[in-house]
């Protein structure tokens, strides 16, 4: 294929752009925590000086800040986030290993649900523009955007767990019926955004000249929509996947707390309240990395789907 060299160059350029972003991320996280008043061990009561010193040596808290920073950077390069300050026998890597699969499952399912349902609603509304279907689904979408997930969640629990008793109110055992409510809660605002976005871009595409050409060719409406309109209409939706992931990760903090799910978000909030420096930094960097990588992937996908970028980069 003609475009591969172009995509490769595009990919390398983007990857190079990721490095400073990562560096800034790590730096901010590190120094923010270090300038924080109150270390991890002076929270409860003053420890004997010897023990404090031992701890400091163990966690390198006695070294100059710059040295600590460089040491931390080195560790990050090997994906080693160090030991947790609070969970004594755990490393941050192990904690992430515990929590992330849970968060990924809920988040991944929510993402899937959101993009499938969102695009279907959006396309339907666009094809029935200015009808009751359109107004209804867009009003619903606006509601989805406006209701915070920490409002939705208790309401869903109230309805499906307390009143109807169909689903458990919370907890986690990897069973599907414990995933239903968290996934829906997490997906709802994303469904709403995706639906609005899809509708808007679909309407724009349907007004474009090349759609008129496709109709002039006598193609059935189905073919006009599926083969000519759908792909360009979905491009903005694909580039929304990056921000959507960031939103889902943020939302997971709330959702995991409300539904008592032992995911990474729960660890993060707990770590933040306990001043567990290494854990909090680890999670921030881990999620930052995830978002950056996902943005990169989406970027590549976008470039691959858009022949024009393929071509421009080739020159």
């Amino acid at each position: 294929m003609t475009g591969h060299a172009g995509i490769l160059r595009h990919a390398i350029q983007r990857l190079l752009g990721v490095i400073p972003t990562l560096l800034v991320l790590v730096t901010i996280a590190f120094f923010l925590i270090r300038v924080a008043p109150g270390g991890p061990f002076d929270a409860e009561k003053a420890l004997p000086a010897e023990i404090q010193a031992n701890l400091n040596v163990k966690y390198h808290l006695d070294e100059p800040l710059v040295q600590q920073y460089l040491r931390y950077l080195g560790q990050i390069l090997t994906f080693d986030f160090g030991p947790s300050f609070q969970y004594k026998d755990w490393t941050v890597n192990e904690l992430i290993g515990e929590g992330f699969p849970v968060s990924l499952t809920v988040g991944g399912l929510a993402m899937l649900l959101a993009f499938v349902v969102g695009t279907v609603i959006g396309v339907t509304a666009a094809l029935r523009q200015n009808t009751a279907v359109d107004y209804g689904s867009m009003g619903f979408a606006m509601l989805g955007i406006s209701i915070p997930n920490f409002v939705i969640a208790p309401l869903l629990i109230l309805l499906f767990a307390v009143f109807l008793g169909w689903l458990p109110a919370g907890g986690w055992d990897w069973s599907l019926n414990r995933m239903v409510l968290p996934v829906i809660t997490l997906a709802l605002p994303v469904i709403a955004y995706v639906a609005r976005l899809t509708r808007g871009s679909m309407i724009e595409v349907l007004h474009s000249n090349f759609i008129r050409t496709a109709r002039a060719k006598g193609l059935p409406e189905r073919a006009v929509i599926l083969q000519h309109a759908l792909k360009p209409a979905l491009l903005p939706v694909i580039s929304f996947m990056g921000p959507a992931t960031a939103g889902l990760i943020t939302g997971s903090v709330i959702v995991e707390r409300i539904y008592a799910i032992p995911g990474l978000g729960s660890y993060f909030v707990q770590g933040a309240l306990n001043r567990d420096y290494t854990l909090v930094m680890g999670v921030v960097i881990f999620y930052g990395l995830l978002i950056i990588l996902l943005n990169f992937t989406v970027d590549m996908l976008y470039a691959w789907l858009n022949p024009k970028i393929r071509y421009d980069e080739k020159r």
Binding site: T21, V24, L25, I28, L32, A246, I249, T250, V253, F268, V283, V284, Y287, G288, I291, I292, N295
Partner: peptide, 8 residues
Amino acid sequence: YAMPFMFF
């Protein structure tokens, strides 16, 4: 922009 802003 690429930072996980809520976490910050």
